[in-house]
């Protein structure tokens, strides 16, 4: 039982990181109709950004802040203006392919320009463990959980309690009505892109110490973020959290009790089950189709 709880706790911590990446995914889809296939690379690039900042002597917190600013500009503003804006009218597929292009370019850029080897990454949390009710918890897991939880809660508060947040939700629900009501749609969509870039930076800060910085680290994170978003419900912010945690915990449990070799397949199986039996996701609402 103790080992089971152990697995659940560390699974929740990993899952919370998936959830942070999944949140950005969900927001982009809701507000802008953009499915970002480069979501994983949006996590990988800030990881290398921070490494470079650390390389020139910055402490981790400063490197993180600098990377956040850079990410907001490049992965938020420039991505929206350069790729999403011109392609949004052509339907989903050209945009998906363009983001795939971004993903390939980003991966090969880091591999050719920086290194193909996995790089160590400093943890923002102190080493060591503490014990709660017979379960050993590392400071890293606890810290990850606190930060990811705080981000999800404050994002939800921002979306529900502030005027800007509500305006963003209005854009997500019905772009035309939002425009008629005088909401600056383009600005709200820009906010979403910037928030997505910042969430990616946080995910990078939390996951890279565990998985190391490598040019292809985004492949796993990107797919899991998507699966987490679907499993929880694509049109719900809380859904991403539930989906992420579910995947994290199930991966740990399956990896330990069944077969570590098939850990990576867990998210797919959960995803297939959800879309077979509850296609709108566990917390999702049904959506009508438009002609």
């Amino acid at each position: 039982m103790a080992e089971f709880l152990q697995l659940v706790v560390s699974g929740i911590a990993t899952g919370a990181i998936y959830a942070v990446a999944a949140l950005g995914f969900t927001l982009m889809w809701q507000a802008a109709g953009v499915i970002n296939f480069a979501q994983g690379e949006f996590v990988m690039l800030p990881a290398f950004g921070m490494l470079m900042c650390i390389g020139v002597g910055m402490p981790l917190w400063l490197a993180f802040l600098v990377t956040c600013v850079a990410a907001a500009l490049v992965l938020g503003y420039a991505f929206k203006r350069g790729i999403a804006d011109p392609l949004i009218h052509h339907g989903v597929i050209p945009l998906v392919i363009a983001t795939l292009g971004v993903s390939i370019a980003a991966k090969s850029f880091v591999r050719s320009g920086y290194s193909a080897m996995a790089q160590q990454f400093p943890s923002p949390f102190p080493e060591g463990v503490f014990h709660v009710a017979g379960v050993t918890v590392s400071f890293a897991d606890a810290g990850t959980l606190v930060i990811a939880g705080a981000i999800v809660l404050s994002l939800q508060a921002f979306l529900n309690r502030t005027v800007t947040g509500r305006a963003m939700q209005a854009v997500a629900q019905n772009t035309e009505s939002a425009r008629v009501l005088g909401i600056d749609v383009s600005r709200m969509v820009l906010y979403v892109f910037v928030i997505n870039a910042l969430l990616a930076c946080v995910a990078a800060l939390l996951i890279t110490p565990i998985y190391l910085a490598k040019f292809d680290m985004g492949e796993t994170i990107g797919t899991k973020a998507f699966f987490a978003a679907i499993i929880g419900g694509f049109n719900q912010t809380r859904g991403a959290l539930l989906g992420g945690v579910l995947i994290g915990v199930m991966e740990n449990v399956v990896g330990y009790y069944l077969s570590p070799a098939y850990k990576e397949g867990v998210a797919l199986v959960l995803f297939l089950l959800v879309i077979l039996f509850r296609p709108e996701g566990i917390l999702g609402r049904r959506e009508e189709r438009k002609v």
């Binding site: 790729i83 392609l87 052509h90 050209p94 292009g101 390939i104 370019a105 991966k107 090969s108």
Partner: peptide, 18 residues
């Protein structure tokens, strides 16, 4: 660098010639 160029070319291709 060709994969980098390939990725960028793909984005440009989509924007210019979907």
């Amino acid at each position: 660098w060709y994969l980098v160029a390939f990725g960028v070319a793909l984005v440009v291709l989509m924007v210019w010639l979907p």
